[in-house]
């Protein structure tokens, strides 16, 4: 790998990628963490940091582990970073209803609070599956690959999580969405 100029160009590309994707990554991280804005930011920065060290792999031949879809790769990195963070911190878990400040006093703020409040009640893996399926619009198979589980397990997890969400915000949701 090459000259200083090539490296600068590659870094520029990385910054362009990071700028374009940071919003989407942050939103996913925000849902994944059940509305913990600080942790969400940490996870996104960590994900971008990992992307930075892997960035040269975009130039590789396909047999040498080229990254074909950096956006998808980043999403996988984010979800796995979140899951492993949670695995290690599980003892310190606080199923909190205390939500961090929400800046915009828009109409959808109530909806957001209701949603992340309910998400925060789900176990981490269930939450990851729900976010991937209904926010990221990933198929069951894609979701299974990202969380390293079987498709059947993802389906089971998903329906269990849906039932829980429904009992938590079933009526609320109808009302809030209709508004």
């Amino acid at each position: 790998m090459g000259t200083a100029r090539q490296r600068a160009a590659s870094e520029e590309e990385f910054v362009a990628f990071a700028t374009a994707r940071s919003g989407q990554l942050y939103r996913s991280a925000y849902f994944l963490t059940g509305g913990d804005a600080h942790l969400a930011e940490d996870l996104v920065q960590d994900t971008l940091g990992q992307m930075y060290t892997q960035w040269h792999r975009l130039q590789r031949p396909s047999w040498a582990g080229r990254i074909d879809n950096p956006a998808g790769y980043a999403r996988t990195v984010l979800v796995r970073a979140y899951l492993s963070h949670h695995r290690r911190r599980s003892s310190a878990e606080r199923p909190s209803q205390v939500l961090p400040e929400v800046p915009a006093p828009e109409q959808d703020a109530a909806l957001r609070l209701a949603l992340v409040g309910a998400l925060a009640q789900l176990p981490p893996r269930d939450r990851a599956v729900v976010v991937l399926r209904y926010w990221e619009d990933r198929s069951v198979e894609e979701t299974a690959a990202i969380v390293k589980d079987s498709s059947a397990a993802v389906r089971t997890r998903c329906s269990r999580a849906l039932a829980r969400l429904r009992s938590l915000l079933g009526a609320d949701l109808a009302e809030l969405v209709a508004r």
């Binding site: 910054v15 920065q45 971008l48 990992q50 992307m51």
Partner: peptide, 11 residues
């Protein structure tokens, strides 16, 4: 911008 800078630094 903060996220991008933080990511670069972390990398």
């Amino acid at each position: 911008a903060r996220l991008v800078d933080g990511g670069l630094e972390a990398g």
